[in-house]
């Protein structure tokens, strides 16, 4: 069934472009493929809920604002005091395991993977290019790897997930993917843009 899954940026035919890599491109853009993910709702202050998550998933849910935690290919990103994005291994089996663990605690699990596109922005000028569109202080320690932040990219809502290698994973709603991609590609022109495909 995965093959039926249509990628939000398929119309740009990014893989087929095979443009010669821009030798000294300031930034590289990449549309990451589908990853199963969910939004998890529950109360940070509900010790039972937090413990149940730990028991079911084998790691701690990040309770501090804008922090992330990871374990065994699964990453939990803090979105709000009662909201997390759980990224990876959240297909039916993973979801079932989590739902079972959380039984009896007030929570909600909302499928999210189809509704999102992650655009990876990397390269030596990634921060400058992102800084054209996003009002966050990207040099702040609050945005070091290990953190995440919801904000805006020009006029659409994003979740920003800085990577250890200086790249940014920018999560946008599926319907905004084309807009966000074009914004970034245009902003990157100043420093040269390369397009990469795949992971």
């Amino acid at each position: 069934m995965t093959s039926l899954r249509h990628q939000p940026l398929a119309h740009l035919a990014l893989a087929a472009r095979r443009e010669p890599p821009v030798a000294d491109a300031g930034v590289t853009l990449r549309a990451l493929p589908y990853r199963p993910s969910i939004i998890l709702r529950g109360e940070s202050g509900d010790a039972g809920f937090v413990a149940a998550f730990r028991a079911g998933m084998g790691f701690e849910l990040p309770l501090d604002p804008n922090r992330i935690s990871s374990h065994d290919g699964v990453t939990a990103l803090w979105l709000g005091p009662s909201e997390w994005l759980i990224l990876g291994a959240m297909g039916p089996a993973g979801q079932g395991r989590l739902a079972t663990a959380l039984t009896g605690h007030h929570h909600a699990i909302i499928n999210n993977g189809d509704g999102q596109q992650i655009i990876a922005l990397s390269g030596p000028r990634a921060r400058d290019v992102l800084g054209k569109l996003c009002p966050l202080d990207l040099e702040s320690p609050d945005l070091a790897p290990g953190h995440c932040a919801r904000s805006i990219l020009a006029r659409c809502s994003i979740l920003l997930h800085p990577q250890p290698d200086g790249a940014y994973h920018i999560h946008v709603g599926r319907s905004f993917a084309d807009y966000a991609w074009r914004l970034l590609a245009d902003a990157g022109l100043t420093y040269g843009v390369a397009v990469a495909s795949g992971d």
């Binding site: 604002p65 709000g80 009002p135 966050l136 202080d137 609050d142 932040a149 919801r150 904000s151 805006i152």
Partner: peptide, 10 residues
């Protein structure tokens, strides 16, 4: 109160 200093646009 949760996320700290952010610009009015958010």
């Amino acid at each position: 109160p949760w996320c700290g200093d952010r610009s009015e646009q958010e």
